[in-house]
């Protein structure tokens, strides 16, 4: 008997399944990632997943909460994957572990666990890492075909776990700054935008390789939309605002500001639009609220990218907008049935 009170039936959809679909939607992006940068990312993903589950179990144990239903909800795994995808794949193992552990323990469980954290745990993890270990966070792998000496899988493993590269190979030879970071540095050096974009790391729209990874995440996002696991409000408002702001600056000063598509397909924009900002726990619940929230994040991302000190703005834009969520929700309560002004 399902209980003493109606409704006696429920739709067979669980939190666990929702999270699983989101994880599945990340797979195209991850596959393209592996294609361009080698399997190092799979190691970060695995490390982050294991850390997340262990820390989650530990935190649940401390709080005397049941382990099985929470470990099976897949939410810790999602946090782990989003964080792993946000940090350089060649980062030392402990960086992934520290970031994930912080994300799960402090920013999720100390705030009350699933459903209660005001900030996106993965983005908190990222913020902690980029503030504490900035140099480790800037060594991104050079995409396949661009590196002088391509690293084999055992080489990548060796570097992640022992910090050792093959003899005669310097870290600079196999890593680079991100296309966004390079753009910012070069603009500071007064290099012409046209010349910057002719550097070999740039492809059609943005960075070679990374633009395709972003396309992978876009595909995953479309899957989430089609499955109605996310609503259109957040991705549309975020990408729209990012497009309009960067477009305005690009129109006003094309020699110093890249085209909107560059912003769309660089950094964590696509990942953020469909996977990070859409985290239901840390985003507004009302449709209008979602639009405001994501538009704010789009604007902040652009501002941090173009005028701030960090290579990408996604994480801080997300966290800053997370702060505003309760206020946005309170402000944007929709009118209820029968209480609207207009009646036919």
């Amino acid at each position: 008997m399902s209980g003493f009170f109606s409704p006696f039936i429920t739709k067979p959809v669980s939190v666990s399944q929702i999270m699983l679909h989101v994880l599945l939607a990340l797979i195209p992006g991850i596959a393209i990632y592996v294609w361009f940068y080698g399997p190092a990312i799979l190691i970060s993903l695995t490390l982050a997943s294991i850390t997340a589950l262990v820390i989650e179990a530990l935190m649940l144990k401390i709080q005397n909460k049941p382990l099985a239903p929470y470990l099976k909800d897949n939410s810790a795994l999602l946090t782990a994957w989003l964080l792993a995808l946000s940090i350089p794949p060649l980062a030392p193992w402990w960086l992934v572990v520290v970031g994930t552990a912080f994300a799960i323990s402090i920013s999720k469980h100390l705030y009350g666990g699933l459903g209660n954290n005001p900030f996106n745990p993965a983005m908190i993890g990222y913020a902690v890492l980029i503030i504490s270990f900035p140099s480790h966070m800037t060594h991104w792998l050079t995409p396949h075909g661009l590196a002088e000496i391509p690293l084999s899988f055992p080489d990548q493993l060796n570097y992640i776990f022992h910090g050792m590269l093959p003899d005669g190979v310097r870290l600079d030879a196999v890593t680079m700054a991100t296309p966004l970071d390079t753009l910012k540095t070069q603009l500071h050096l007064n290099t012409q935008l046209k010349d910057i974009l002719e550097m070999p790391i740039y492809g059609r729209m943005a960075g070679i390789g990374s633009e395709w990874v972003a396309t992978g995440f876009l595909l995953g996002g479309i899957y989430l939309l089609a499955k109605r696991l996310i609503s259109w409000h957040i991705p549309a408002a975020f990408l729209g605002t990012l497009f309009i702001t960067s477009g305005l600056f690009h129109l006003l000063d094309p020699s110093h500001h890249v085209a909107p598509l560059f912003h769309w397909f660089s950094g964590a924009a696509m990942l953020g639009a469909f996977f990070i900002l859409t985290d239901p726990v840390t985003s507004p619940t009302t449709p209008r609220g979602k639009l405001i929230f994501a538009a704010g994040a789009g604007l902040l991302t652009y501002l941090i990218r173009s005028f701030g000190g960090f290579p990408d703005g996604m994480a801080f834009a997300t966290l800053l907008m997370n702060i505003c969520v309760p206020l946005i929700d309170a402000w944007t309560q929709p009118k209820v049935f029968g209480k609207k002004e207009k009646q036919p």
Binding site: I18, L114, G115, T286, Q333, V336
Partner: peptide, 26 residues
Amino acid sequence: LFPTAKPALPCIRCTRCADVCPSELQ
């Protein structure tokens, strides 16, 4: 016909409930 309900998990604010509410509540 009406199997025992699974234990409740915390609300993740997914707003599926708001999406289906005929009174347009939250």
